Amino acid sequence: MNGTLVDENLGLFVAVARQLSFVEAAKRLGMSTSTVSRRIALLEETLGTRLLQRTSRRVGLTLEGTRLLERAGPLLDQLGAVLDQSVDREEEPAGRLRVTAPVTSGGQRIAPLLFSFAARHPRVAVELTLTNAVVDLVEEGFDLAFRVGPIRDAELVARRLWSIESVFAASPRFVQDTLKGQTQLTREALAKVPAVMAMPRGVWRLRRRDGGVEEVRPMEVRVAVNDTQVAVAAALAGLGVVSAARELVAAHGKKLVPLTVKGRTPEPRELFAVYPSRKQLSTRARRALDWVMEHGAPESPRRA
Rank of each mutant, 00 (worst) to 15 (best):
N2E: 11
N2Q: 11
L10H: 01
G11W: 02
F13E: 04
A15Y: 03
V16G: 01
R18M: 04
A26D: 02
T33D: 11
T33C: 05
R39Q: 09
A41H: 02
L42C: 07
E44P: 00
G48P: 01
G48A: 02
T49H: 01
R50S: 01
T55V: 02
S56I: 07
R58I: 12
R58P: 07
V59C: 10
G60E: 15
G73R: 05
L76T: 04
V82E: 07
D84A: 13
Q85P: 00
V87F: 12
P93Q: 06
R96L: 09
L97S: 08
P102E: 08
S105W: 09
G106H: 01
L114D: 14
S116I: 09
A119N: 12
A119I: 10
A125W: 03
D136A: 08
V138K: 11
E140D: 14
V148K: 10
G149V: 07
G149L: 03
R152Y: 09
W162G: 09
S163G: 15
S171E: 03
L179F: 08
R187K: 14
E188T: 10
E188M: 06
L190S: 11
K192S: 14
M197T: 01
R201K: 07
R205Q: 08
R207A: 10
R207V: 09
R208T: 11
D210I: 03
P218E: 09
M219F: 12
E220V: 14
V225C: 03
V225T: 11
Q229D: 10
A234S: 14
G238P: 05
L239P: 08
G240Q: 07
S243V: 05
S243C: 12
A245N: 05
R246K: 15
K254T: 05
R264F: 14
T265Y: 10
T265V: 14
P268R: 12
E270K: 09
E270C: 08
A273H: 05
A273L: 07
L281W: 13
T283V: 15
R284P: 04
A288H: 05
A288R: 05
D290E: 06
D290Y: 06
M293F: 13
E294D: 13
H295G: 02
G296K: 03
A297L: 12
P298L: 13
P298C: 06
R303A: 12
